[in-house]
Amino acid sequence: MFDRSIASVVLAAALIAAIGGAQAHDDSKYPNWKGQWIRVGGGQGAPWDPGKPWGRGQEAPLTGEYQAIFEANLADQAAGGQGTDPTYRCIPSGMPRIMIAVQPMEIVVTPETTYVMLELFTTLRRIFTDGRAWPAEIEPSFAGYSIGTWEDTDGDGRYDTLVVETRGLKGPRTYDSSGLPFHKDGQTVIKERISLDRANPAVLQNEVTTIDNALTRPWTVKRSYRRVPREPPVWSEYICSEDNRHVLIGNENYVVSGDGLLMPVRKGQPPPDLRHFQSQK
């Protein structure tokens, strides 16, 4: 009897080891989102809502305080500055702006995690679909912390929609290059519904709803991406710092000229203070 117990334990251990090695992954349960995705539409300046013009034309539901911040940023941009858009100094777009997909995107679906790989800023999003709860503490990041659940909305036995919530975002971030701002409290929550277009599986749709204290109500936009038919896809490396000539010294933005000298970016801009150089003392 005792020996049979040992045998059972050994058998159970062997089975557990075998299952651990098997890593069963029923790939047929998940949609085919393979390939290279490129944004559809969007117009000049890649505005956040691709259905509306860039800038004020977006009609973002900003509070009065943040509308004023947005207007000041537009004035700065008109004067040659960069406004509130931090990407000129190679700060990543972050969420949700990165989902404009200005450069191509790849999505790799695994049972535990869906990876969204964006060429721009070589951004990697991990959307955890392993059933985890929100952690007690989240280290803020530009991509945020994303938890997703798969839904089989048409009941055909296969998942078709990934429902995602993203929290834990850090700033500075803007919705697009016009400088539409987020609240400085970093409490943005983003909800996405990602699925293939039922009429055209070469089109991926993403309904993105942003909840942020700079907004008077949640702001929903629909973005879509087309699957590039070229096989295999060609991927490029986008390295922001490689060609970036902006230099930030204190709060002043300068550029380095083609001949390697520091230059102002706006008329009458003062040069940097050189008090720490021996020759200036």
Partner: peptide
């Protein structure tokens, strides 16, 4: 990095040399 020179920006936002007796950047465009 300005031309071939490496500088630092101090915590209080000023440009600093990284080497002893390093010349400051040429400001001819200002």
């Amino acid at each position: 990095f300005v031309g071939k020179e490496t500088y630092f920006v101090s915590a209080d936002g000023y440009l600093m040399p990284t080497k002893k007796d390093q010349p400051p950047p040429d400001l001819r465009y200002f």
